[in-house]
Every structure is written in structure tokens, then in C-alpha cells.
Computed example of a mutant assay.
Amino acid sequence: MAPIKDNLSAVLYGINDMRLEQRPIPVPKDNQVLLQMEVVGICGSDVHYLTTGCCGPFVVKEPMVIGHEASGTVVEVGKNVKNLKPGDRVAIEPGVPCRYCTYCKTGKYHLCKDLFFCATPPDDGNLSRYYVHDADFCWKLPSNMSLEEGAIMEPLSVGVHACKRAGIKVGDVCLIAGAGPIGLVTLLSAKAMGASKIVITDIMDVKLNMAKQLGADHALKIDRNMTEEQIVKKVHELLGEEPNVTFDCTGIESSVRICVAAAGLAGVVVLVGMGKVEMTLPLGSALIREVDVRGTFRYVNDYPTSIELVSTGRINVKPLITHHFTLEESVKAFEVAKTQEGNPIKILIHANPNWKRS
């Protein structure tokens, strides 16, 4: 392989301080692959790091390459890599665990305390020309899937994991609070897994219209003057019954309260959005209704499921993709993500310099 010299990378130095700079070409270890990065999506957490310097407990203290929703093409493999070869197109699962702790050994590797995660301080992300990653967390894409779809496997896996935590099955009736990207992938996942009726809520018509296009049975616009009781009553009226599964995809306390209050007897509430550490919730009524409240954190063993759902046509993620930029346009792309100009859902940055706009 000819020597590689261009590793242009998007590096976050501080609040609203993103710079494009050349970084050294990484060298894969024995169990890693060197990837030519192809497509990197912008996540809400990336925007938080840019605008506030932190996301939850994670704080940017040193310059950090941004980006973790990604796909790439293998260009070099470590000597112990057996599952991939140069030329393979992969979706990159950004979290790599230690593989040895109790959580890893019991199949909950996403809870590993020594987890490396792209673009979570202090770990660099992959919005760059080239990047190395552990081969067993690179998932080969079927021939009928694009690299753009490959990058969407990261947010889709969040929705898939939320639905697995909920135990979604054929005939379930659901409420999804929030029609942002995560609410929409949760909607797609729930439909694919058999949910029969879904109502989704948001404060913006454009988001609700997209939710309807993606299969929501009902789209409820929330007026800021509506009380929680009024919203719960409207959800029940639209569905014709109480939902047995509710998802909060906002992290907003009032939204979580509504999800708990709206759930039917022996229902399940799944918390997907990250919000305040402490909230006041109607747990007394949840107790006597035997409502389960379940947390979610990213995903675990969900990339294969997500790829299968897309490659077989049960989920179509293409409508989520609204904006395209080159790596050189990364600052502009993040500005669109910050301002929401043009109502973006999923903004993709193309790291391969050979990509051409269609």
C-alpha cells in the first residue's frame, strides 16, 4: 500500500472551537484494522461537547477528535485479524470494552468500566480520513447496504436496544415521547419488532410529520400550555387504550412523568433520553399499577440486529438522512446541527475525499 499522508481530522479544542488539522496516520495493533473513514454522522452528544464542553459527566479537557456514528473501509489488518480483510466495508461500533470484567463476561459489555468509546473524553473519535479500531467491533456490511446506512447503525442500535429492553412483541401498544433522531429510530425499531399501535409526541410539526411518514399511527403535538393530565388523556384517546410500553426519548422531566403516568397496568417505561440526575416522578401510582421503569445505556449486541433489520428491508433508515457535507465542511455541518437550520434529522459528513455530491 502506498504511504498515506492525509489524515485531516476534526478536533474539538473547547467550547465552539473546532479545528481541522492533520493528525498522524494511526498504526493498527495486532487485533485492530486501519480504516479509511467514509461517513460520520453528527450526534446530539457531539453538539453538546461543542457547545458546552461536556455531555453529562464527561468533560472535554484536552483536544479531542469528534465523531462516533461511522462507517469505513478496511485498508490494513493486524496480524491476528481473521474476520476482516482489506476492501471490506464496515459499520463501526464505537464502544470497545475490556472483555474480562464481570459485565463483559455476562454479555453486558456496554457497562464495562474500562470501556473505550469514540469521542467520549478522553478518547478520540473518528471524524478523520483514517482511524484504527478493534476488528471485532467492526461489523461487515452486506452488499445491499450503503456506507451511509452503515453510519446510521449507531443511532439505530440505540432504538433497537431500547425496544429489546422493553421486550417489544407483536401487538404491543406504545407511546414514544420525542420525535428527534432517537425517537424516530425507536419508532422504526418498535414497528419492525411488531408493535401494532404507536403514538409519538413532540412540540414541532416537522418532526411529527416525519414520524407519520415513518409509520407512526398517531402524532400528537404538545402545546406548552397543556397539563400533564391533559396529555396523558389525549394519548389514551388516540390509542383507544392505555399503552403497555412507553419510551421517553427526551430526557425532559415532564416528559418522563407523562410516560410513567400514561403506562397501563403492568406496563413498561423505558428511559432512553439522558436528562437530569434527579427527577420528581409519580412512582407511587406506578407502584400500585406494577409499572416497570427501565433504563437504557447505548446498546449491547445490537449492531448485528440493526444490520439485519436494514439489509432485509424491515427498516428503511434513508429518510432520516437530510444533509450531506465533506470533511472540509465539518464546521459548517456542526453549525447546521447547532442552529437546526433546514430542520436536519441526520447530518452526514463524508470523510473520503473521493466522495462526490450526486
Rank of each mutant, 00 (worst) to 15 (best):
P3G: 01
D6M: 07
N7V: 05
N7S: 03
L8I: 00
L8Q: 04
S9K: 06
L12V: 13
R19N: 04
L20Q: 00
R23T: 05
R23Q: 12
P26F: 03
P28S: 10
N31Y: 04
V33H: 01
E38Y: 00
G41V: 04
C43M: 00
H48W: 03
L50S: 06
T52Y: 12
G53H: 03
G56N: 08
P57L: 14
F58I: 03
V59G: 02
V60L: 09
K61P: 07
G67K: 02
E69L: 11
T73F: 01
V75Q: 03
E76G: 11
V77S: 07
V77H: 00
V77N: 06
N83R: 13
G87N: 07
D88P: 03
P97R: 03
C98L: 10
T102L: 15
C104D: 14
L115S: 12
F116C: 11
F117N: 06
A119Q: 07
T120L: 14
T120K: 08
G125M: 07
L127E: 08
Y130N: 04
V132R: 00
H133M: 07
D136E: 10
C138I: 04
C138F: 02
M145K: 02
M145Q: 10
L147E: 06
I152R: 01
P155C: 05
L156M: 10
S157D: 11
V158T: 12
V160G: 03
A162L: 06
K164F: 14
R165P: 15
I168N: 11
I168G: 11
P181F: 01
T186D: 13
K191W: 06
S196Q: 13
K197W: 08
T201D: 12
D202F: 05
K207I: 09
K207P: 09
K212D: 04
Q213R: 08
G215L: 00
A216E: 06
A219H: 02
L220K: 01
I222F: 01
N225Q: 10
N225L: 12
M226N: 09
T227C: 09
E229P: 03
H236Q: 12
E241A: 09
N244M: 02
T246K: 12
F247H: 08
D248Q: 07
D248S: 07
V272M: 03
K276I: 04
K276L: 14
V277S: 13
G284E: 10
S285Q: 14
D292A: 14
T296K: 01
R298T: 11
N301R: 12
N301I: 03
D302R: 02
P304H: 05
S306A: 15
S311T: 03
G313T: 07
R314Y: 07
R314H: 10
V317Y: 06
I321L: 13
F325D: 04
E328D: 15
E328T: 13
E328Q: 15
V331L: 11
A333D: 02
E335S: 12
E335Y: 07
A337W: 08
G342E: 07
H350D: 05
N352G: 04
N352H: 10
K356S: 09
R357A: 15
S358M: 09
